[in-house]
Simulated scan of single mutants.
Amino acid sequence: MTPRQQAFLARPFALGAEPAPQYPPVPVPTLLLASLLPPHVVAVESFGARGGDWRAGLHPAEIRAMAHAGDKRRREFAEVRVRARQALEALGEPPVALLPGPRGEPRWPHGVVGSMTHCAGYRAAAVARRSDGTAGLGVDAEPHAPLADGVLEMVADPAERAHLAALALLRPDVCWGRVLFSVKEAIFKAWYPLARRELDFLEARVRLSVDPGPEPAGGFRATVTVPGPLPAAAGRWRVAHGVIASAVEVPAAGP
């Protein structure tokens, strides 16, 4: 089992054992993920959970794909796909089914790249056209809470852990281990559709930066240590309303 798979298996214990976050009233629209991406990328996001029939707004093929799933999985699947379909509509795309691929990755329409994410109380999707210069996207959201014991050692190498310790002296109000986790998840979501293989947590080395000002936000740069289509990546992260969001856009190669 790879380190990333081990950490992923630890996530339900890290997240599921936590009480559900209590979110303050959020103005509409809330630009959390959208604030991390360039203007040609369309991001749609929502806080809270959608009530009613989970099938509302889904394509018939998506409903069939979830026929044997549990209620929690169905609602997560449905809510994030409703956001993705809204993003595609804003991009001018027809309402096609967004079925999962072999590793659970969404299958986007031809010429479109995208990424979805959800955590307790938050759903988001981002899409862009390849013709606008985007080769890949990766977005992730996590609750702003510490990682479970032992997970950081699977996510970060010693140099990264020392880096997080230094950041904690600068901003002790930020759950830096979870920020790093989210950033690496965003990188992996951008990597997989391009490389068609998974990336372990320790195969991406990340350095985080912090913006001046009171809000927890900043950038990141990453080096991928295995051969592949994404030797380096850069993006943004932000904490708002109890959620960590991170995003990376992979520009298309020049002529």
Rank of each mutant, 00 (worst) to 15 (best):
Q6R: 15
F8H: 15
F8T: 14
L9K: 10
R11Q: 13
R11K: 12
F13K: 11
A14K: 03
L15A: 08
L15H: 08
A17N: 13
A20M: 07
P27K: 04
P29Q: 06
T30K: 00
T30I: 01
L31K: 05
L33F: 01
L36D: 00
P38F: 05
P39S: 13
V41T: 03
V42P: 01
V44S: 04
E45D: 11
S46Y: 02
F47T: 00
F47H: 15
R50E: 15
R55P: 08
L58K: 07
I63K: 05
I63F: 07
A65K: 07
A67M: 04
A69M: 12
A69W: 13
G70T: 10
K72N: 06
R74S: 07
R75N: 11
E76V: 04
E76K: 06
A78D: 06
E79T: 13
V82W: 11
R83M: 14
A84C: 10
A84F: 02
R85Q: 14
Q86A: 15
E89Q: 15
A90I: 02
L91E: 11
G92N: 14
E93M: 15
A97E: 12
A97I: 11
A97W: 07
A97M: 10
P102H: 07
P102W: 05
R103D: 13
E105Y: 06
R107S: 14
H110N: 08
G114D: 07
T117G: 01
C119Q: 02
A120P: 01
Y122F: 15
R129K: 15
S131A: 15
D132G: 12
G133V: 08
D140W: 00
D140C: 04
P143A: 13
H144S: 05
A145D: 03
A145N: 00
P146V: 08
L152P: 04
M154P: 01
M154D: 07
V155H: 03
A159H: 14
E160R: 05
R161M: 13
A165D: 14
L169S: 10
L169D: 13
L169V: 10
L170D: 12
L170G: 02
R171N: 06
L180Q: 02
A186R: 02
F188A: 14
F188S: 14
F188M: 13
K189Q: 10
A190D: 09
W191M: 10
W191L: 05
L194W: 10
R196D: 15
R197G: 03
D200F: 12
D200P: 07
L202E: 09
A204Q: 04
L208D: 01
D211I: 00
P212G: 11
P212C: 06
P214I: 03
P216K: 01
G218P: 01
F220E: 01
A222V: 05
V224Q: 06
T225H: 02
L230E: 07
A232W: 09
R238D: 00
A240I: 00
G242V: 03
G242C: 01
G242A: 04
S246D: 00
S246A: 12
P251M: 09
A252C: 14
A252M: 11
A253E: 15
G254Y: 09
G254M: 11
